[in-house]
Amino acid sequence: MAAAKSSLKIGQKAPEFELPDQDLKNRKLSDFRGKKTILAFFPAAESSVCTAEMCAIRDSLDELRDYGANVLGISVDGPFVNKAFANNHHLSFPVLSDYGRKVIKKYGIVMKKLASMPDYNAAKRSVFILDEQGKVRYRWVSDNPLVEPNYAEIKEFLKKNNGSSNN
Rank of each mutant, 00 (worst) to 15 (best):
E18G: 10
R27E: 10
K28M: 09
I38A: 08
D23F: 13
K25A: 10
F32M: 02
S6C: 14
I10F: 06
G34R: 02
F32Q: 01
E18T: 15
S6V: 04
E16W: 04
K13E: 13
K36G: 05
R27V: 15
S30Q: 13
A44M: 12
P43E: 07
P15A: 12
N26Y: 12
L19S: 10
K25M: 07
G11P: 01
L24T: 11
P20Q: 08
G34A: 01
Q22E: 15
T37E: 07
A14R: 03
K13R: 06
P15N: 11
R33T: 01
S30P: 06
I10W: 07
K35W: 07
L24G: 10
K9P: 08
S30L: 11
L29Y: 14
A14G: 03
K36F: 06
K5M: 10
R27M: 11
L24C: 10
L24R: 12
E18Q: 15
S7C: 13
K28Y: 10
F17G: 08
L29I: 04
A44D: 04
F42Y: 15
P43W: 02
P15Q: 08
S6E: 04
Q22S: 13
D31H: 03
L24E: 15
L39K: 03
K35H: 12
N26K: 12
Q22G: 08
L39R: 00
K25S: 09
L24Y: 14
I10Q: 03
R33V: 02
F17R: 09
R33E: 01
K35V: 04
D23I: 07
D21E: 06
K13L: 14
R33P: 01
K5A: 13
A40Y: 06
F17I: 12
P43I: 06
T37G: 07
P15T: 04
K5Y: 12
P20S: 07
S7G: 15
S7F: 07
G34W: 02
K35S: 13
K28A: 14
A40W: 00
L29T: 02
K9F: 11
P43L: 05
A44K: 13
N26P: 02
I38V: 14
K13Y: 05
F17T: 13
R33K: 03
S7R: 13
F32R: 00
Q12L: 09
F32G: 01
L24P: 01
L8D: 08
G34C: 00
S7D: 14
Q12Y: 12
T37P: 04
P43A: 10
A44C: 09
G34F: 02
R33G: 01
R27K: 13
G34E: 00
K35Q: 14
L39F: 09
